[in-house]
Each structure stands twice: as structure tokens, then as C-alpha cells.
């Protein structure tokens, strides 16, 4: 390829790989928040309090239908207006975790709805408490069918981390921008970012698929 500078590529590679680690940490931390907050959102939509159910339902819709990059700005800039200053990392993790928790809550909702009605009735017949019904009967059965969706969103959150660069989180994209503007060369950094993303997300997506197939086999679904 013309104009491609291999020496420059090798020179910037360590910096990009270091930033990749930050990207993975950001994706991981955001995902942990999303997994738990998503569960809270899903369960909140099943309470008998209609106002809470409808409120959470609407909030999930709202988060899902507005751009993540705008939400990142919102979280980062609105705090200081009211005297709460968040670091880029904190704001970024809150925004991305919140965004994906809305998606994950839908995955869980699907999983919970796939549990046969008889299981609920059996739990009621054994007069299990609501807590026991959920944590011992329903969620263990709702989890396996949710795993594929959860895996897809793990890959999804990884691919959305470049948006954190807009508030200055030093992940991969931010580092590539910095390298580009320091050296006036964008070809190598941006192309390498693309290649690094492919190198991680393609195997990850393949792993999610085979894991899904494995779970389905285990459950005797296919």
C-alpha cells in the first residue's frame, strides 16, 4: 500500500496496545454496571406498583432511543452545573453502563418471560417468598436463554467505547486521535485502530456464537 509507513506503525503500536487495555477495562467496567443495573430495571418492571413499572419502562425506552454519545455529554456536563464534578472515566462508565443496562433489561425481560408459567405456580404452591421465587426458581432458568443476548451486548459495548474519547477518556480512539495530531499522520493510527477492533471483536463474536450453541445443546434445545 502506498504511503504506508511501517516504521511509524511499529513505533505507535505499543501506545495503541496500551490504550487497547484501557478500552477493554472501560468495556468491562461498563458491562458490569450494565449487567446489574439491567437486572434491577428488569425486575422493577415486574413489581405490582404500576407507577414504578411504567416509569422504568418509559426510561428504558428513552435510553434505548437516544444516542449514547449525547448521553455521555449529558452525564459529563450536567453534573458540574449542579456542583457535582465527575471525572471523564466516572461519567463515561455511568453513561455507557446506563445505556447498556437498558438493552440488557430487555434481554432479561425476554428471558424471564420464557420461563414456563407452571414454574411460577409451583413456586407459589410451595409458598416460596417472592425473593426465593426469583432468585432460586425464575432467574436460574431465565439466565441460559438470556446468555446469547448478553454476549452480543458485551461485544456491542466494546465497539461503543470509542465514543468515550469525546470527553477525553484515554481509550484507543482517543490515543489514535492524539497520535494523529502529534504527527500529522492519520492513515496508520486510524487503520490500526480498525484492525485492533476487528482482531478482538470477530473472535469475541465467534466465541459468543459457539457459547450460545453450547448452552443450547446443554439445555437440549437443539
Amino acid at each position: 500500500m502506498f504511503d504506508w509507513d511501517w516504521a511509524f506503525t511499529l513505533e505507535i503500536l505499543p501506545r495503541l496496545l496500551e490504550a487497547t487495555l484501557n478500552t477493554l477495562i472501560a468495556a468491562g467496567a461498563g458491562y458490569v454496571i450494565a449487567v446489574f443495573l439491567g437486572l434491577a430495571f428488569a425486575l422493577a418492571q415486574r413489581t405490582p406498583f404500576r407507577a414504578l413499572t411504567l416509569g422504568v419502562r418509559e426510561a428504558v425506552e428513552f435510553i434505548r432511543s437516544t444516542p449514547l454519545v449525547l448521553q455521555i455529554f449529558f452525564v459529563f456536563f450536567v453534573g458540574p452545573q449542579f456542583g457535582v464534578t465527575l471525572s471523564p472515566w466516572t461519567a463515561g462508565m455511568i453513561a455507557i453502563g446506563l445505556h447498556y443496562s437498558a438493552y440488557l433489561s430487555e434481554v432479561y425481560r425476554g428471558g424471564i418471560e420464557s420461563v414456563p408459567k407452571g414454574q411460577w405456580e409451583a413456586a407459589a404452591a410451595l409458598s416460596l417468598s417472592t425473593r426465593d421465587t426469583y432468585f432460586r426458581i425464575i432467574i436460574p432458568q431465565a439466565l441460559p436463554p438470556s446468555l446469547a443476548g448478553m454476549g452480543n451486548y458485551l461485544v456491542g459495548i466494546f465497539k461503543d467505547t470509542p465514543m468515550l474519547s469525546v470527553i477525553g477518556v484515554a481509550e484507543l480512539m482517543h490515543t489514535a486521535n492524539a497520535i494523529g495530531s502529534e504527527n500529522y499522520r492519520y492513515l496508520e493510527p486510524y487503520t490500526m485502530v480498525g484492525i485492533i477492533f476487528l482482531c478482538i471483536s470477530l473472535p469475541a463474536a465467534a466465541m459468543v456464537r459457539s457459547f450460545e450453541a453450547w448452552v443450547r445443546r446443554k439445555l437440549g434445545l437443539s
Partner: peptide, 10 residues
């Protein structure tokens, strides 16, 4: 496999 933002910049 890559991000929209990466593609846009590219």
C-alpha cells in the same frame, strides 16, 4: 466488527 466512529474517522 469495528465501530461506527472508527469507520467515520477513517
Amino acid at each position: 466488527g469495528t465501530s461506527l466512529l472508527v469507520q467515520l474517522y477513517w
